[in-house]
Amino acid sequence: MPADAKLSHTAAMILQAIHAGHIYGFSVMQMTGLPSGTVYPAMRRLERDGLIFSKWEQQSIADAEQRPPRKYYRLTRTGRATLEAAWERYPLLEKMIPTPVVERA
């Protein structure tokens, strides 16, 4: 997917939430206010289009906390470029889901 492709508002919100450090599906839901039935299919689509990628948490961390490992999501380089293009299209995006200062630097 080219970086200048137009994202829907929902997809842009999800990218922004992941960019802001909300890397698990449920935390994306919490941050965007969208239901799970919207967030997860949208994340699958973004992953298929190469804007985000997923990884499993290390088993040792999950074992230490006696819980199953969770899957987390990160932006790809294309995803980052696409999000930056989306900021111009949706100027309020950063205000709705602010990016931590450390992340932006």
Binding site: M29, L34, G37
Partner: peptide, 19 residues
């Protein structure tokens, strides 16, 4: 949070699986 109960949260599995 929206969908904070496990049951409500799990309703998203069907649209996700369909997709």
């Amino acid at each position: 949070s929206p969908g904070a109960s496990p049951l409500e949260f799990s309703r998203g599995v069907f649209p996700d699986a369909f997709w």
